[in-house]
Simulated scan of single mutants.
Amino acid sequence: MISEKANEIFDKAIQDYHVHDQIDRPIINPYPPDSLERLLYLKCWIDTVQWHMEDEVRRPDIDPVEGLRWKRRIDQSNQDRTDTVEDIDDYFVRQFAGVIPEKTARINTESVAWAIDRLSILALKIFHMQQQTQRTDAAPAHISACRSKLAILEEQRSDLSQSIDELLEDIQAGRKYMKVYKQMKMYNDPALNPVLYTASK
């Protein structure tokens, strides 16, 4: 099952990051080039780094200049995240290139890779919520609330994992078909963001 493999890789990426817990530490991707596993590891590593960037930018005493620097890094990270999701979708487009959809086949509301994107974020939420349940400096009510939230997150991961596997089965059987739209983000593109292209004149 793809979801089982993805969840294992996401958990590994998160654990690997937290060995050093440094935003700027270079990624060491253990999987072969051009493999789905490599893309999944990269995807979750980007998400994990960005999670910690989002923490930094919310420091109440942050200098505005420093805050803007983090905001721009987060913007770039979002672009890298989107590019990687699209690479994962391209992988599945190639995988299912020979499948002939049934006449009654339907398109899904989101692509396989964007569903996998949500699975990666859930892995991060579960990891950090688990950390909250282990705090020794928090009140019992906080620990109890976090345990309840953790149970919900784990249920969400189980449900989403099943949905992803079922979607892939449907595509393989021709009951659904893949149609991928690029995100076409405009704010990072100097040819599409009016603030950027007017400033260059």
Results as ranks from 00 to 15, higher is better:
E166L: 09
L153N: 05
P194S: 06
K43Q: 13
Y177Q: 12
N108V: 11
T104S: 14
A139W: 05
Q22C: 11
I14Y: 03
A13E: 00
V49G: 01
K182V: 00
I121M: 11
T84H: 06
R106Q: 14
D165Q: 02
Q156D: 07
F92A: 07
R175N: 03
Y197Q: 08
I126A: 03
N188V: 04
W51I: 09
K103S: 12
W114K: 15
E102H: 09
S148C: 11
I107P: 06
P33Y: 08
A141M: 08
K12E: 07
A191I: 02
E86T: 09
W70A: 04
P190N: 07
I152N: 03
D16C: 07
R135Y: 00
A199Y: 08
Y31D: 04
D24M: 13
E54P: 03
T84A: 01
I2S: 01
S35W: 05
I126F: 04
I23M: 06
A6T: 12
W70D: 03
V49A: 02
V57D: 02
V99F: 08
D87H: 04
H52M: 08
E155P: 00
F127D: 04
P60D: 06
H18L: 11
K182Q: 02
Y197H: 14
A151F: 06
W70R: 04
A151N: 06
D21S: 13
D63S: 12
I2A: 07
